[in-house]
């Protein structure tokens, strides 16, 4: 497995480009590892006031909080930095990861008593393809490619992968496109 994972390709997110079409959501369910469930999150930020939507994939943290708080050792990170969805035989459906993840990513599938989350379309990325969501995204809110490609396309933005939540700094594999020169995003 994973011999063909293209390490030079990275994931870039920019939710201000999102048009809320949910193509990513439909495509995510097509990912073979998800059993036709969508793992990506698209939601209105506050529909009464704005049409703004946000899109969230798993950021694949360097030191994933989800894996740390898991009582069943069900979440693992691999050599490519991909934080995998819960091991189906171990997960006990406690939702610790769901509530602790600072990006609000893991999903508790109540019916299956199982947590599921984005694994960056491992069925595709592990054979050198791009993740489904970033392939179909019509707005570039999700993009999968090299840093050089990104630099060329959006020279006035900088990929940032450091996020501040209170006194915690979380570094991630997935990048957020920020105004040029930014080094981090303080969320809370």
């Amino acid at each position: 497995m994973a011999q063909s994972y293209k390490v030079q390709q990275e994931f870039f997110v920019d939710m201000q480009r999102c048009i809320g079409c949910r193509a990513c959501e439909a495509a995510c369910a097509e990912c073979e590892t998800n059993g036709h469930e969508s793992m990506i999150h698209v939601n209105y930020v506050d529909r009464a006031q704005t049409i703004q939507t946000t899109v969230q994939v798993c950021m694949h943290c360097d030191d994933p909080v989800c894996a740390n708080v898991c009582p069943a050792d069900a979440i693992t990170k691999d050599e490519f930095g991909i934080v995998h969805s819960a091991n189906t035989s171990r997960c006990i459906g406690c939702s610790n990861c769901v509530m602790a993840c600072p990006f609000g990513v893991p999903k508790k599938m109540e019916k299956y008593d199982l947590m599921m989350k984005c694994n960056m379309c491992y069925d595709r990325t592990s054979v050198g393809k791009k993740p489904m969501c970033a392939t179909v995204c019509p707005s570039g809110a999700l993009f999968f490619g090299t840093r050089e490609q990104m630099e060329k396309m959006r020279p006035n933005s900088t990929p940032v992968n450091k996020f501040i939540f209170g006194q915690e700094t979380v570094e991630t594999k997935v990048n957020l496109m920020m105004p040029k020169g930014s080094t981090e995003l303080k969320v809370f």
Partner: peptide, 19 residues
């Protein structure tokens, strides 16, 4: 379906209806 990356207009991009 599978995205058709080579087609010049959309290069694999789709909307939910397309997916």
């Amino acid at each position: 379906f599978e995205p058709w990356m080579e087609f010049p207009f959309n290069e694999g991009r789709l909307c939910p209806k397309g997916v």
